Amino acid sequence: MDTRWYGRRSGKKLRPGRQALVETLLPKIRLKVPTGGRIGSLADCFPHAPKDVWLEIGFGGGEHLAAQARAHPDIGFIGCEPFVNGVASALTLVEHDGLTNIRIFDDDARLILDALPDASIGRLFLLFADPWPKRRHERRRLVSGNTLDQFARLMKDGAEFRFASDHMDYVRWTLEQVLRHLSFAWLVCGAGDWRQPPPDWIETRYEAKAFRRGENPVYLRFFRRPRAAAADEKPLL
């Protein structure tokens, strides 16, 4: 049974310049995962100890990841993306802007989730992931009870989980899954909040494509409840 969260690993043949970056730059900033164990300290993965570490799963071409890294030079960023063409695109941005606060994991995100230390992530992004719309593929959707257990383990108390999608069935699925989980609460104040991106939002290429198709994305924000409080909560669904 294929339960991968991602589709293709590669697309068109890379141009020579991008292929060179994959061969030279990627090994320098690739996040290495210990076999059968967990990373001891994320601060040691960066040249300068960051004040916090944020994680983006499925960064596409890396535009959002790089823009966040530019805007927050004191934050360490881990980007997960198995699609080599997307990784190569991100590497061009890292090189062009001289970004030293990005580490890339170019394999199945489940491997890095298993390896991250407890309470080590201050913000987690899952933006315009593949919705796997066919019913037989629902098990390949990233948001599930098991994955949320992992998110809850690795996120700090009060950390934020940002989700965005233009696929309404996936939005409903995600909201149902998260509201059932005792470790998360929905950051919503009004009926229209889910249509408005956060104030510091950075547009992604997939978001721009959705707008060009005339579709309106949905933006969901959740926070990781304090561990002591989460133990006393009851699921909302």
Results as ranks from 00 to 15, higher is better:
residue 148 L to G: 05
residue 78 I to R: 00
residue 186 W to H: 15
residue 48 H to V: 15
residue 113 L to G: 01
residue 19 Q to H: 07
residue 26 L to G: 04
residue 229 A to R: 15
residue 211 F to Q: 11
residue 181 H to K: 02
residue 211 F to E: 10
residue 216 N to H: 14
residue 38 R to K: 11
residue 131 P to R: 09
residue 23 E to F: 06
residue 73 P to W: 07
residue 169 D to P: 11
residue 189 C to D: 15
residue 113 L to P: 01
residue 158 G to M: 00
residue 221 R to D: 06
residue 81 E to G: 02
residue 179 L to K: 13
residue 138 E to C: 12
residue 207 E to V: 02
residue 178 V to H: 05
residue 118 D to C: 04
residue 165 S to M: 03
residue 106 D to H: 05
residue 200 D to Y: 01
residue 53 V to M: 08
residue 164 A to P: 03
residue 203 E to S: 06
residue 159 A to F: 06
residue 18 R to M: 12
residue 18 R to G: 06
residue 46 F to H: 04
residue 43 A to Y: 10
residue 215 E to M: 14
residue 64 H to E: 11
residue 93 L to K: 13
residue 75 I to M: 15
residue 229 A to D: 15
residue 51 K to Y: 15
residue 80 C to M: 05
residue 47 P to K: 06
residue 180 R to K: 11
residue 108 D to P: 11
residue 32 K to T: 15
residue 125 F to Y: 15
residue 193 D to T: 00
residue 172 R to K: 12
residue 62 G to P: 03
residue 76 G to Y: 08
residue 62 G to I: 04
residue 40 G to K: 14
residue 18 R to E: 12
residue 221 R to G: 14
residue 69 A to S: 05
residue 89 S to H: 07
residue 163 F to W: 13
residue 191 A to I: 15
residue 112 I to R: 05
residue 179 L to Y: 04
residue 40 G to L: 09
residue 65 L to E: 01
residue 2 D to Y: 11
residue 48 H to F: 12
residue 236 L to G: 02
residue 78 I to Y: 01
residue 19 Q to L: 12
residue 63 E to F: 03
residue 221 R to A: 13
residue 37 G to I: 10
residue 72 H to L: 12
residue 3 T to C: 10
residue 187 L to S: 13
residue 57 I to W: 08
residue 62 G to M: 02
residue 30 R to P: 11
residue 52 D to R: 03
residue 173 W to C: 04
residue 74 D to Q: 15
residue 109 A to L: 10
residue 107 D to A: 13
residue 220 L to V: 01
residue 56 E to W: 05
residue 21 L to S: 02
residue 31 L to S: 05
residue 93 L to G: 06
residue 105 F to L: 04
residue 130 D to L: 07
residue 151 F to N: 02
residue 31 L to W: 01
residue 7 G to I: 13
residue 33 V to P: 00
residue 110 R to T: 11
residue 117 P to Y: 00
residue 137 H to T: 09
residue 33 V to M: 08
residue 37 G to T: 12
residue 38 R to S: 07
residue 55 L to A: 09
residue 25 L to T: 06
residue 38 R to V: 04
residue 57 I to D: 10
residue 37 G to M: 10
residue 185 A to W: 09
residue 54 W to P: 00
residue 224 R to H: 07
residue 68 Q to L: 14
residue 11 G to P: 09
residue 43 A to W: 01
residue 174 T to F: 02
residue 38 R to D: 02
residue 25 L to C: 00
residue 76 G to M: 14
residue 141 R to V: 12
